[in-house]
Simulated assay, not measured.
Amino acid sequence: MSPRKETVAARIARVLSQRIISGDLAAGERLRQDHLAEEFGASHVPVREAFRLLEAQGLAESEPRRGVRVASFSQERVREVAEMRAALEALALREAAPHLTSAILAEAEAATLAGDKAADVVAWEDANRRFHRTILAPCKMPRLMAAIDDLHAASAHFLFSAWRSEWEPRTDRDHRTILHHLRRGEVDAAAEALARHVRRVSHKPVESSGRQTSSLFLMPG
């Protein structure tokens, strides 16, 4: 069976999600239907569908009489995404565990090493997402994985907003702990370690235009 062709709405949503996650479209920025229809050479119908896809990912939000805007976020929203990821990823890992081969675990370890060597947040996020997808995709539950992918997009939005202009290299000990348990067949311990990992919400001081320091909350994994 040949791969399903990407719809116009999906293509628009994919491009806009990349712009939002990278910070090219800032939180609160309005997404103008007319401008986007012209840019993508499409009618308003697929643009509206793209907006719905972005809302499902938590990357956009619509307001009565104000249209659709890039989603802003708060500590509460970050924690909501963290709790949802913890529950869904632990479920996916338990389902995937019987299918995890030594080759798959080696691939996950390679993704962790790539993250350790990442020169910027873009490279780190790519390696981090590869680690999670590698150990979770064998669950063979496509709807569950689609929901997890949407939550990872929201996590990346939080992450990039804080680390777009600077990056602090890090060693991901949580990933190594998860792999250690999986190699020993300790599935419950691995799932618990994964849930703790994605629940860990930290904050980074940032300076506003008024030179007052505030805290921007994000997820490290």
Rank of each mutant, 00 (worst) to 15 (best):
F158A: 14
T171K: 09
D149M: 03
T177L: 15
R164G: 07
W167G: 09
I178F: 05
A156T: 14
A156N: 09
A153M: 09
F158G: 10
A154L: 13
W167Q: 11
A154P: 05
R173F: 00
A162V: 12
R170D: 03
A153E: 12
R164C: 02
H157A: 09
W163H: 14
A162T: 12
S155N: 09
A154N: 00
R170Y: 03
D150C: 11
T171H: 13
A156P: 00
E168K: 15
R170A: 13
W167L: 04
A153D: 15
F160K: 08
H175P: 01
H157T: 06
D150Q: 11
D149T: 01
D172V: 06
D172N: 12
F160E: 01
I148T: 00
W167A: 11
E166Q: 04
I148R: 06
I178G: 07
S161N: 15
L179M: 10
A162F: 02
F158V: 07
R164L: 07
A156M: 10
R173H: 08
T171D: 05
W163Y: 13
I178R: 12
D174L: 04
R176W: 07
R173D: 07
H152E: 14
L159F: 08
I148S: 03
T171Y: 02
L179E: 00
E168V: 15
E168N: 10
W163S: 03
D174N: 12
R173E: 01
A162R: 08
S161T: 15
I178E: 08
R170V: 12
S165W: 06
L151Y: 06
R170Q: 14
E168H: 08
S155D: 07
H157W: 04
E166M: 10
S155I: 01
S161Y: 14
F160S: 11
S165K: 05
P169G: 03
D172P: 00
S155Y: 05
F160T: 09
P169D: 02
